[in-house]
Design a protein around this nucleic acid. Structure first.
Lengths: 127, 127
DNA sequence: TTGACATAGCGAATCGCTTCGCTACAATAG
DNA sequence: CTATTGTAGCGAAGCGATTCGCTATGTCAA
């Protein structure tokens, strides 16, 4: 089995997001969201889904009608791939540089800050 | 003045990286790096630079010959834009989710961990 | 059955990014 | 001067991603 390293493109990501948010959905539903976001045609949505099916970015259950599509990767996996890509392309492969920038970009709550601290502790222990 | 929100494309980023690493450079130098990385033609490099000039991703000094190109934005700015984009597109606008993922992606040294802790402290204070 | 509407698929047009061939001109060596 | 080499620019081809028109089939109500 050859695993696909390529990142989801812009529209593909938009569709994945919809699936992540709403769970497995028929085209009709996916389309209504996509249409709301950018006014695309129904055919376009169907086509994108068939392309994504080929690329194995989504799967579908063909037994029920209308067919139900679901994301083939979690939000977490997609995010990590994109992070790895960003780190490579911009931060010379040094992820910590990105972490620092991302922190500065964020407006974390106390709770979130605490969570990150705990994560740091764990990473230190696991040496 | 209209500010451009669009992100650098793949090759644009490759060229920006070269400029970030080597500082202001003539086409010849930029090309030799780009060629080493992916075997592109000299014309391609020139063309890309002219496109990037239009998009204001680079500037150039036309007084000297050969002309000298320089990145119009820092690595930091570019990185932040791309982070913002990633956070929007994948993490529902919640940057901390990205921070956590990015941390897990990284293999930080003690020093780096310490730096992040300090950053967290500062962010806490600045409330 | 028939008409109206929902579902699914396919090929071709379009679009933006990338690549390159060809041309032009300047600087330099012979 | 003339040939060679370095620098710069432009238009169009090529490519993958995206969009859409058209067609086919399924479903359901009258």
């Amino acid at each position: 089995m050859t695993l696909d390293n390529s990142l989801p493109t812009a529209v593909e990501l938009q569709i994945l997001r919809i699936l992540w948010e709403h769970g497995p959905s028929p085209v009709r539903l996916i389309h209504s969201r996509l249409h709301a976001e950018k006014g695309t045609n129904y055919s376009t949505t169907v086509k994108m889904l068939s392309v994504m099916l080929e690329k194995q970015l989504v799967t579908r259950d063909e037994n029920c009608s209308p067919m139900v599509y679901r994301a083939a990767m979690t939000r977490g996996i997609a995010g990590r791939r994109m992070i790895r890509n960003l780190v490579e392309k911009v931060y010379d492969g040094v992820a910590m540089n990105l972490v620092v920038h991302a922190l500065k970009e964020s407006k974390p709550t106390d709770k979130e800050l605490e969570a990150v601290r705990k994560l740091l502790d764990e990473m230190e222990k696991r040496k």
